[in-house]
Computed example of a mutant assay.
Amino acid sequence: MPLDIGYARVSTTKQDLDRQIDALRQEGIAAKRIYVDKKSGASTNRPGLHAALDQAREGDVIVVHTLDRLGRTVRDTLNLIHDLADRGVGVRNLADPIKVDSSNPEVKSLGVV
């Protein structure tokens, strides 16, 4: 059965993850399936993201509050979405003005809704 896997990130340890985690929980994602990091997006050492990606199987969807939580740049983020799509894993964002849901087969390209 496909799973929604949540990922939340803030850039510093002084910032709060609550808003992102609350939004993921509102989507019905269980706390045990929400992975978090308090690290800059420029860092490649993001254990929460790596754990979420390792957990994701074909048919699963990585859900983020906003796409900038996934990568430092648009290119990094799009590359990650593309790599996940190659694995059969979708990506869905919750709060960006441009909605992305690459798990939706009805939507072409990168799943811009």
Rank of each mutant, 00 (worst) to 15 (best):
V107G: 01
N79T: 13
P97F: 15
N104Y: 01
D101C: 00
T66S: 14
G90D: 05
L67I: 13
S102W: 01
V63R: 07
K108M: 12
R87P: 09
G71C: 09
H82I: 05
V61F: 00
L94C: 11
S109M: 15
D86C: 06
V100D: 00
R57W: 12
R69K: 08
L70F: 10
R92E: 06
L70M: 14
K108V: 11
V91Y: 07
V61Q: 08
V63T: 06
V61R: 13
N79R: 14
V89W: 11
A95V: 02
L70W: 10
L70V: 08
G59H: 11
G71P: 05
N79D: 15
L84F: 04
L94K: 11
N79Y: 05
G90N: 03
H65P: 03
L78E: 08
D68V: 13
D60L: 11
L80N: 05
D96S: 03
N93G: 06
R87N: 04
V61M: 06
N93M: 03
L78V: 13
I62Y: 07
H65E: 04
D83K: 14
L84G: 08
H82V: 07
E58P: 09
V61Y: 00
H65G: 04
L94F: 10
G90V: 04
N104P: 04
L80I: 01
K99D: 08
D76Y: 05
V74A: 12
G59V: 02
R87F: 07
V100K: 01
T66W: 04
V63P: 08
R75V: 15
S109Q: 14
G88K: 02
T77R: 08
S109R: 14
L94N: 12
D83C: 03
V89E: 06
D83I: 02
K108F: 11
P105S: 04
L70H: 10
D86R: 12
D76G: 00
N93S: 12
V63M: 08
H65V: 00
T77A: 10
N104G: 02
P105K: 07
R87K: 15
R75Q: 14
I98V: 14
T77L: 12
L67D: 07
S102I: 02
D83V: 01
P97D: 14
I62G: 10
H65D: 07
I62S: 10
R75N: 12
V89H: 09
T77I: 08
D86G: 15
I62V: 14
V74E: 05
S109G: 14
L94Y: 13
G90R: 09
S109N: 15
I62R: 10
L94A: 10
V61D: 01
T66L: 04
K99N: 06
D60Q: 11
V64P: 03
R72M: 12
N93E: 01
D101M: 02
K108D: 13
K108L: 14
K108I: 07
T66P: 01
L80T: 05
D101L: 02
V107N: 01
G71H: 08
G90M: 09
D83P: 03
L84E: 05
V91S: 02
I62M: 09
N104V: 00
S103R: 00
I81T: 07
L78Q: 05
S109L: 15
D76Q: 10
D83F: 01
T73S: 15
L70T: 08
D68Y: 09
R72A: 13
G90Q: 08
H65I: 00
P105C: 03
A95M: 14
R75E: 14
G59M: 09
